[in-house]
Amino acid sequence: MRWTTLSVVVLLAVAGCSGGESAVPGGAPPSAIDRLLAKAPVATAIPAGSAMARIKDRGELLIGGSLDAPLLSQQNPGTGELTGFDADLGKLLAKYIIGEPKTKLVTSTSETREPLLANGTVDVILQTYTITPQRAERVAFAGPYYSSGQAIAVRRGTTGIAKPADLAGRKVIAGANTPAIAAIKAAAPTAEIVEFGSDPECLTALRQGRGEAYVQDQALLIADAAQDGELEVVGEPFTTDPYGIGLKHGDEQFKQFVNDWLREIQKSGLWQDVWRDSIGTVVKGDPPTPPVIGSAQGS
């Protein structure tokens, strides 16, 4: 088949001759993380034999997280750089322990996080990891470092959906394996949940009328609505999800260490700066008051 060869040639030509152009449009602006890293703190004392000492000796912090969570931990396919709130915190934590922001991301999923921590594949999990007492039986949670919540989005002009109870009996779109599914079941048990694999798929499905509402983390929905005029976020978040930094179960020393660091960056205003550079690019107003460390049940 001649066209096969032809298309390879065209493909390579296209790929080759447009090398200089800039990256992909439509993503978040590049994070100003370098500026923040310059003034980020470094731990004064690392106790010998601790998890932190091992990380420092290795010279790299191994983080379990996502590549495709907008505003939180998203890879820019153009540069390979990881940006977002979680990603930036990871770099700051790496600098705090090692003295340099050296991190390596291991993609984890909601099912694999606990074994990844238990068998030492990763040092920390930074992945919208909601602190719950049940999970705390298997994982140590530092934090909460951020408090988020699930919200509802609809196509502009949709009527009759103003609060979670209105979802009852309707088709509701949610991301597969996201906390939204449990939240919908709790708020409106009769809602029919239609799951799709990723945020753009859910958005496209909502636009094409596969469901009447879309439940997702509020910050993400605000970011989506900023790009798509047809999308409307209804009301305030109807859940409170305190995100924690997952650590190996039972490592009180590391947990204490990470909590001290969180308190330090909250006090110095670094936490607020990270928020402004990520979530704050779409959510209007001043940074929220950071959650009190240890305030969530299970942390």
Partner: peptide, 17 residues
């Protein structure tokens, strides 16, 4: 599957999932 589920409605053909 992805192309048909999300692409077909764009050409005006909309079946149930």
């Amino acid at each position: 599957l992805v192309l048909f589920v999300f692409g077909l409605p764009e050409v005006g053909v909309r079946f149930p999932l």
